[in-house]
Nucleic acid binder design. Structure first.
Lengths: 205, 205
DNA sequence: CGCAGATTTGACAGCCATCAAGGTACGTGG
DNA sequence: CCACGTACCTTGATGGCTGTCAAATCTGCG
């Protein structure tokens, strides 16, 4: 049995669902960019992760009814909804499915805890360099890249909200990276010019 | 069938295992305090969570061979090791077990992502207030508390390493909390004197 | 008592935030 | 075609939260 899928879309800035809502489906992004975030009552916003085509919004949604994060579309997006009860029925009779869901949770936890380390212990330069490298790696896996030019729909506000900085400071750091010949960012496309140096700044290699 | 359990112990400061090691067991803390952490090559350390009696070190260990974090004992500890292969055999023939593991992963991810929000978007005062409240809540659940005096084996260095601050600044904030009559901390025991105010500082309620 | 480790306190510095003023790009409508 | 508005980015000046360094004090313990 295959679980029923419902396909939907959303426009940029549109919220797909909110923290605290009861969600009856597991969502998978099929096209575009989105992000998961937590918003505080005074307006401060922390982005938890960016979602690319193929990403499950969160493995925890298979086992939790209430979402602990909100989701917003960054570009035009399309996504699939799979009924949670259906999915779990399939998983129960399918060892490989349980295995995959478990691995998914493990990877998500690792990502989250490396982000904790970034936010707690790394400088603005390190965080931004690592974000860029992380995104380009994920885009490389999707093989949509031509000549190292990556589609890059993020505003400085988004980068600020995932790195725990302000948009102004993000602009300064990105400007410094550009002037140092590390990256180029024009027309919604990012080019990594000096990956080695960016990795050194990010504390990799 | 019940999976084999091996019981062991460790002394304060002793590392139980390291990031990158291949771990063949799922660990459960039976007694004492420990913490999970990631250490950078230059010595910076980020604590991911404190472990109390009854805590599984991490749900992701059921599905990942290599640990992405290290674990160190904070006090004298005792813990159980359950062979991963055994555990998974049991889980495969036991729907409730899969369910429990899934819920465990979901809770861990929620905790991790709320910590991300703390680190990215909250001030030192907020982070420390929330840490104290989080720990006292968890200790309350364990019903080991007498007259609101909580065992508190953390050094300022540990608080610094989970809040992304320095020990000196942690000392200043804790000193301010003490002088403001919010908490008392003597002889390894913590007393929350004014919980309401602490919650207000932490952005709760 | 004496030592080692932890905490407290003070002076100072730096990273990043805040506030504010342009500048640029792009779409809209006259 | 150009004025205009909006959103975003850039740049400068200033400030504050937190870090760094260092010394003094406290605490536990052999």
């Amino acid at each position: 049995m295959v679980p029923a899928q419902i396909h939907e879309g959303a426009r940029p800035q549109e919220n797909i669902y909110f923290r605290g809502e009861t969600i009856e489906s597991v969502y998978v992004l099929c096209f575009g960019w989105a992000f998961r975030f937590i918003q505080l009552s005074d307006g401060r916003r922390q982005i938890l992760s960016f979602l690319l085509a193929g990403d499950v919004f969160s493995g925890s949604m298979v086992y939790e009814e209430k979402s602990h994060f909100s989701v917003q579309a960054l570009t035009d997006v399309r996504f699939a909804r799979i009924d949670r009860a259906d999915l779990r029925r399939v998983a129960n009779s399918n060892y490989g499915m349980v295995e995959s869901l478990g691995k998914l949770c493990a990877v998500e936890q690792k990502d989250a805890e490396e982000r904790i380390t970034d936010l707690g212990r790394r400088s603005a330069d390190e965080r931004i360099a690592r974000l860029i490298l992380n995104l380009t790696d994920r885009l490389d896996e999707r093989e949509v890249v031509r000549e190292r030019r990556y589609p890059f729909p993020l505003r400085q506000q988004h980068i600020a909200d995932i790195t725990g900085l302000t948009p102004v400071h993000v602009g300064r750091v990105m400007g410094a990276f550009r002037k140092a010949g590390l990256i180029d960012l024009t027309g919604g496309f990012l080019t990594v010019i000096n990956q080695t140096k960016l990795e050194r700044i990010g504390g990799l290699k």
